[in-house]
Design a protein around this nucleic acid. Structure first.
Lengths: 107, 107
DNA sequence: TTGACATGCAACCAAATAGTTGCATATAAG
DNA sequence: CTTATATGCAACTATTTGGTTGCATGTCAA
């Protein structure tokens, strides 16, 4: 329900990239996710922590390895609750805009 | 196509609130949008500028009044291109997670 | 046990962000 | 014309954020 944490987590490109990677290959370790990322392990760990905090990533320990799994639920919630709000009446809004623009002379 | 600007714009609660307001009542002036917002007019103007930059808000001048209109297109693009990516294979990912968790003993 | 690997924690730093205030400009109204 | 309204621009500030480094802890393997 904390959509603020989700939106903030999604605001960073590195974090979106991490989600992309987990999407392609779920259940990776921290050190796997670091590979080729031009930033330190600790930076990646922080990003993953933020994603975890936003409940976008779930974690499972296996011995000394921390496995990361993507959790699509919060994204679906945003899509359904907030984005859907703008999707559904899309045509109405666009036609309102068109009408408003036509109400005024072009110049 | 600049999804980074859109995500960053959506990351702030005040800006999401402004979009909510425009959704309920499209084509408002800057000073309308300031009402009751516990922040200065200039702060609101900055937020609207960021939304405009991200193409989430379109603007039409009417004399000395600047009217703001919500633009749902970028949100739809995100929803379709990026969020849809996680929505579609939702079941597969969740069952992967379930399988992975069951692979390890609970404790 | 010893050493290598995987991760966590904390302090620190630079850049970006959200907000402020003050002043300028343009339009509408009296 | 004068005044009030609607907005813009710019400088400044505090907080947040994304990143670093150094060191500590825990687990696997030889």
């Amino acid at each position: 329900m904390d959509d603020d944490a989700v939106f903030k987590a999604l605001a960073d490109g590195s974090r979106r990239l991490l989600l992309d990677r987990l999407f392609r290959n779920n259940g990776q370790r921290l050190s796997d996710l670091c590979a080729g990322l031009d930033m330190s392990r600790q930076a990646v760990a922080k990003h993953l922590g933020i994603l975890e905090e936003a409940n976008l990533v779930a974690v499972q320990w296996a011995g000394r390895e921390k496995l990361h799994f993507i959790n699509p639920v919060p994204i679906n919630q945003i899509s359904e609750r907030w984005i859907g709000k703008f999707e559904l009446p899309r045509m109405r809004v666009l036609s309102d805009l068109k009408a408003s623009l036509e109400k005024k002379p072009r110049k």
